[in-house]
């Protein structure tokens, strides 16, 4: 896949040496945790905290994740709902905590953002993309964030402008940039295509 330099590069989760482990996933990201578990030492999950946002995968992963017997297991309806718990967890974390993020770019980006704010070195965080390539975009005009964008162009859910979804990505905002696609001639209305699946 062709990409540009502002966009994060995702890897493959692998168990790290550490006193405790915080694993966060949404939807198909759960399968990355299950794959990591196959390579993990026996006592790994005794010091692990799994935070899971099932999204479109419904209840297909819960049983397998719980079967790993993590010390703590959380399930939440959205990134926003999970945020207070994450903030608390990071604020109370001890040295030697390892973080693992898996799933959509929106999940990885927002959790990464919260971790950086809490003083975690981003280079120490493992990431793996799984599932949807739907994008989180910031409208450069009104600054509103539109979640789960799958089309090109896309409509800003705040101001309604038709936006070209660029590859340019801000880690600080955990979002791609959206710029009005028909600013030169508003009578030109390009067809939307589903391209971020």
């Amino acid at each position: 896949m062709k990409t540009i330099l502002s966009r994060p590069v995702y890897g493959t989760l692998s168990p790290q040496a550490g006193k405790s482990h915080l694993l966060i996933a949404d939807a198909e990201g759960a399968s990355a945790i299950l794959d990591l578990a196959k390579k993990a030492p026996e006592d790994f999950f005794a010091n692990a905290h799994i935070m899971f946002i099932p999204g479109r995968t419904g209840d297909s992963f819960q049983a397998s994740l719980k079967a790993l017997k993590p010390a703590q297991y959380y399930e939440g309806p959205s990134v926003a709902a999970a945020m207070p718990r994450l903030t608390w967890t990071l604020a109370n974390a001890h040295m030697g905590l390892r973080m693992y993020l898996a799933g959509t770019e929106g999940l990885i980006g927002q959790m990464m953002q919260a971790a950086i704010e809490a003083g975690v070195d981003p280079a120490s965080i493992q990431t793996e993309h799984r599932g949807s390539w739907a994008r989180r975009i910031q409208c450069v005009h009104c600054k509103g964030i539109t979640e789960n964008v799958t089309t090109q162009p896309a409509t800003c859910s705040h101001c309604g402008l038709l936006l070209l979804v660029r590859d340019h990505y801000s880690k600080r905002l955990a979002a791609f940039q959206g710029v009005c696609i028909n600013a030169e001639d508003p009578t030109e209305v390009p067809q939307k295509e589903e391209i971020f699946r």
Binding site: I4, L5, S6, Q138, V140, D167, H168, S170
Partner: peptide, 17 residues
């Protein structure tokens, strides 16, 4: 280019486009 979008980026990131 938007400062609000690019603030905090490194040299390669803000020139990415």
């Amino acid at each position: 280019w938007s400062l609000d979008f690019d603030i905090g980026m490194n040299f390669f990131e803000w020139h990415a486009p």
